[in-house]
Design a protein around this nucleic acid. Structure first.
Lengths: 329, 329
DNA sequence: TTGTATGCGTTATCAG
DNA sequence: CTGATAACGCATACAA
């Protein structure tokens, strides 16, 4: 059942203008054409209300000017921000985005890669978690926050540096005993370096620290247990917390407040990501902010670059500290 | 410059399987085919690693299984939520989403409609502001929150009912003098009915109220002026505020707190939209929550429905009150 | 039920 | 610089 609304084609325009089909194509694509021919064609296009049909071009050239972006969702504000900046970067280059939500489902990650190939997208940008995901060789592919191999460019924030920055900032704000908490897949991806950077800086500065890391399948209450085990006489042993994400930091802060601990007076908290209220207002918590726009730009230039072989296999972009009211500075 | 990576085609599969091209097509599309033929074809597909090419089909059938979604951005969490649920609804029906950000730019709204037509999308879902936007006739088009004409289905929350609900809720929570504040385009769209519903309910209940509405180009400080004009002896004349959006409500609450007014003890605040922290945690403010998922589902079923003529021209979906800590209940 | 053949709208290759 | 024409991969009407 073909749609009946297909309008005039280049052939119609050619007939109307009294020129050859090829000439119409050349005019439409802005190639060199004699002035009077160009004018005749343009006039015919206007008369007929001709509209370019991308399907024909896609079939002929096998290029769709479309990039697939595979991501868990847009409910998480960090992902929403990524979607935004990647789409803006693509648009600037006259590319469209095909958005694929995996909802953290391993099978869907695989399925979407297949689907993207089927749709002949010109490249794939993916933020995935499936440990055994296999990357197609025949299509430009870049990943965010996760290293696969030297042949698959990975773009990420400087997670290690960010972890170290958080430790230094807590120390600078007067903390004497700190902890790092995170929850996440067992997968060793770039964000897991936040922990390593934090530890490294704590050791270097001689700042006492503890680590509490949960797997995805563990309950949040484990964190409450951990913290309550460190409560003595209404006081928490730690005066500074570095939390893996802003979202988790927010949840932890709620627990602290429930226990009548003041933030930042009693406990200072630094998150990670740089989430802002309503996307553009103040930071939700003091945080190590990811350079989302730069990440997006880099993903796009990389996936669109002619030969991926000349591209670095891991690109780390600098983070920065942002005050959000949960630290003393 | 064609991409060189085009793999095997249906013709290759047909040759490999020793059947006709049409048979391959029928197998791939799940049509009735003899069992032994089907098996031969499937085997050949596996042997060759054949992958379906959507471009050919799109050209042939003039259907792309793609819907364009035109929206200002995904930075605003309400828009991000819409994107999420619309994409999920589309995916369920095996449709893809082409995401278009207008950044509130009138020209880009027009440009994207043209671009979507060019890409032969099967329909457009749009949330726009350009007062003189003209809707294409030859492509299924549904709009969110804005009524164009009876021939263009509009999906929206029950904004009028939501406004009334907010007024009743404030009254129920003990408010005796309330105000409504909003900022937004002069465009009379569905969300402007929040005000009307609020007024209607206030009048009905005999609840004294004031209205302060700003145009897009006016500064937020106008609100501060308005409120400070209603401060007497460190107390605000109003004990309840209904604000056009959660985002604005948040900004207003910051002002109130700056003036040492307690929320909800001194002033209760209700927003609109139903934004949650990090998309899935508690509500940011007490609010009239939009039924985002239902809106998304309805948009998708409507834009994909065979004949738009049998579809209502305005569909209002019920809202509900959600507690978010800025009211007494 | 399966095979054959045509055309969808475009680009690209040749000749002129 | 322009005209004519052959693909691109697939769906489908028609023939067998």
């Amino acid at each position: 059942m073909p749609k009946e609304r297909s309008g005039p084609t280049m052939a119609d325009v050619a007939r109307e203008a009294g020129v050859a089909l090829g000439t119409v194509s050349r005019v439409v694509n802005g190639e060199q054409v004699g002035d009077e021919f160009r004018e005749k064609v343009n006039a015919a296009i206007r008369r007929l209300g001709y509209r370019y049909n991308n399907s024909g071009r896609a079939l002929r050239t096998d290029r769709t000017n479309t990039i697939a972006f595979i991501i868990p969702n847009t409910i998480n504000p960090y992902f929403a921000l990524l979607v935004h900046h990647i789409n803006v970067a693509l648009e600037k280059r006259n590319y469209r985005m095909m958005l694929c939500f995996t909802d953290y489902d391993k099978d869907r990650e695989i399925e979407f890669i297949r689907m993207a190939q089927q749709n002949r997208v010109d490249g794939i940008i993916a933020l995935t978690y499936n440990p055994s995901l296999s990357i197609p060789e025949d299509i430009p592919f870049v990943t965010i926050d996760r290293f696969f191999s030297v042949s698959v460019p990975c773009i990420a924030a400087d997670n290690f540096g960010g972890g170290a920055l958080a430790a230094r900032k807590l120390k600078e704000c007067g903390c004497r005993n700190v902890a790092f908490m995170r929850i996440g897949s067992a997968l060793t991806n770039e964000p897991s370096k936040r922990r390593d950077g934090f530890i490294s800086a704590c050791v270097e500065m001689g700042l006492p620290f503890e680590i509490k890391a949960l797997e995805d399948n563990q309950s949040f209450s484990e964190f409450e247990n951990f913290l309550s085990g460190h409560m003595h006489g209404g006081k928490l042993d730690f005066d500074g917390l570095f939390i893996g994400t802003d979202s988790l930091a927010w949840s932890i802060i709620k627990v602290l407040k429930k226990w009548n601990l003041r933030v930042p007076e009693d406990v200072q908290v630094i998150g990670f990501d740089g989430i802002r209220m309503f996307g553009d207002q103040e930071c939700v918590v003091s945080t190590i902010a990811q350079p989302v726009q730069e990440i997006a730009e880099t993903c796009v230039t990389t996936v669109l670059s002619r030969d991926l072989s000349s591209v670095p296999s891991l690109i780390c972009l600098p983070v920065r500290y942002e005050f959000g009211g949960t630290t003393k500075g």
